[in-house]
Nucleic acid binder design. Structure first.
Length: 485
RNA sequence: GUCCCCAUCGUCUAGAGGCCUAGGACGUCGCCCUUUCAAGGCGAUAACAAGGGUUCGAAUCCCUUUGGGGACGCCA
């Protein structure tokens, strides 16, 4: 493919990865980070990490830390970020809220944005109407031209409000994508985008545009799912009187059924890949092969080789399926090439180091008579795991479909947990005893079998805490699938 | 439903109009090596979504259809 990505000559290339700290460190984040980093370094530029924690309800410091740790584990380290600082900080959006408010105010004063007092009930109604009439936008702009006095009155009365961008009512907006060329969108397709939420925090759209500008970002390399909102961003840049950056939309990683990669159908947590024993360089190599190829079609190459040959012209745009079989093969190649001493070091850096061992050891201390018993009694902490057939998972006296529903409920409960420790796990699982109507013994045995593939194990909640959320989720999901009628 | 993106073996991909009778890799299946299992070697399997153009010539350029995906949140 012929692509020409414009590179500014008067200022350095600066790109960013902008994860939202709302859950597991995601494999898609690593994918996008990799291509940002390699593009930056190919062009002697800078790769910036910015935390997009403007969702006050869902963002957590633990998630932020997990993301930083995972990206570092992969070697995708950054030149500027919340932990190491840099000349354009702060790099955490929650610490920049004043900036967004000022910018929103500017747009209001210039007549490019307005206060909107629609309640969520009003919005629900509008969405319903829009759906009914097959309209392209949901919000009917009812507060767009409110008389100034009424706006003042409502503000003075302390009514909650959001700030919306005034979209042009006609015409088209052109988005230029570095890989796809020009995309023209009819402005009538665009909603008056919310810029400032009623909690005073910015939406992604505002924060992203303001920060990319202030942080001198030259190229926005992000996932394809952003294409539909890019015209809104372009219009926002225009409203500020700014030159937009170059947009490059990467293909989306896919599940086996071609849908956007998701935790329901794939392990997506980087934590899963680390604890299951993938080598970071193998994962990076694999991610690099998603949509991109070396000029000589090598399958196995390290980051520095990718860097040497990197060119967006070698991207293919079809969404690649995340094929774990091929990852396994690649990972095996990397392991085989390790010197024996290096392999030992890797094993110790993985779960055979004293840190993990000291979490496991207390759990079996009372259950082993000889040190040698440690190995057979702890295999499932390390990956020694034999998925059980459906018959083995269904509790006596229960139907398979009942077991399926109960285990699915447990899996979903686990998905939605944001902290992972013994007490929280116990709380979540006990709640499922109520919800499913299973006996404590039946439900917990089923979960135990799903998570450890053993009948006799150390206490369930402690074991799950040590095994870690990512692997528990994967094993629960697999067991649920085998029970699926 | 509306808008947008995408389209080569099951999967990841090579392919910039003649080098394509479409190449490589994973997977699968055979054979070899081997005390076992891996690994390795050799081989097989398998794709240009369809139809119209353009051209002396199309996997490659254009159009239509079909298929797949994404977006339509006070999530990012």
């Amino acid at each position: 493919m012929t692509v020409e990505i414009p590179i500014p000559t008067d200022r350095p290339v600066r790109v960013r990865i902008a994860p939202s700290p709302t859950g597991e460190p995601h494999v898609g984040t690593a994918y996008i980070a990799l291509f940002n980093k390699v593009f930056a370094e190919k062009n002697n530029g800078r790769f910036i990490l910015r935390i997009e924690d403007t969702d006050q309800r869902r963002s957590t410091p633990e998630s932020e830390q997990a993301i930083l740790d995972s990206l570092r584990w992969l070697g995708l380290d950054w030149h500027e970020g919340p932990d190491i600082g840099g000349p354009y900080g702060p790099y955490r959006q929650s610490e920049r809220t004043e900036l967004y408010r000022e910018h929103a105010k500017y747009l209001i004063d210039e007549g490019n944005a307005y206060y909107c007092f629609a309640t969520s009930e009003e919005l629900d109604e509008m969405r319903a109407t829009a759906k009914e009439q097959g309209l392209r936008t949901a919000y009917d702009r009812r507060y767009r031209d409110l008389p100034r006095e009424e706006v003042e009155r409502r503000l003075a009365a302390g009514e909650p409000y959001v700030v919306r961008l005034k979209m042009p009512l006609s015409g088209t907006t052109r988005v230029t994508d570095g890989l796809r060329g020009d995309i023209d969108i009819d402005n009538a397709e665009l909603d008056d985008q919310i810029l400032l939420k009623s909690d005073g925090f910015p939406t992604y759209h505002l924060a992203n545009v303001v920060d990319d500008r202030l942080m001198q970002i030259t190229h926005v390399i992000r996932a394809e799912e952003w294409i539909p909102s890019t015209p809104k961003h372009v219009l926002l840049y225009q409203a500020f009187g700014w030159e937009p950056p170059v947009f490059i939309h990467m293909p989306l990683l896919r599940n086996n059924d071609k849908t956007k990669i998701s935790k329901r159908k794939n392990p997506v947590s980087l934590e899963y890949y680390r604890t299951t024993g993938y080598l970071p360089e193998a994962l990076v190599n694999f991610l690099a092969r998603m949509g991109w190829s070396m000029p000589d079609e090598s399958e196995k190459f390290e980051y520095r080789e990718m860097l040497e040959h990197f060119d967006f012209g070698r991207m293919s745009l079809g969404g690649p399926i995340f094929d774990l079989d091929k990852l396994d093969w690649l990972n095996g190649m990397y392991i085989r090439e390790l010197e024996p001493g290096d392999l030992v070091a890797r094993l110790q850096g993985w779960l055979l180091g004293s840190g993990y061992l000291s979490a496991v050891a207390p759990l079996v201390r009372e259950r082993i008579k000889r040190l040698g018993d440690f190995i057979p009694s702890t295999t499932f902490f390390f990956g020694g795991f034999d998925p059980l057939p459906a018959e083995a998972l269904v509790p006596k006296g229960k139907e398979r479909v009942e077991a399926y529903r109960a285990l699915r409920a447990v899996t979903e409960a686990v998905d939605s947990m944001s902290t992972w420790d013994e007490a929280t796990i116990e709380e979540a699982l006990r709640a499922q005893v109520e919800a499913t109507g299973f006996k404590v013994r039946d439900l917990f045995m089923m979960v135990r079998l799903a998570v450890t593939s053993q009948k006799a194990t150390p206490p369930l909640f402690e074991s799950m805490a040590v095994i870690g959320k990512a692997r528990c989720q994967y094993r629960l999901r697999e067991a649920t699938n085998t029970l699926k009628p």
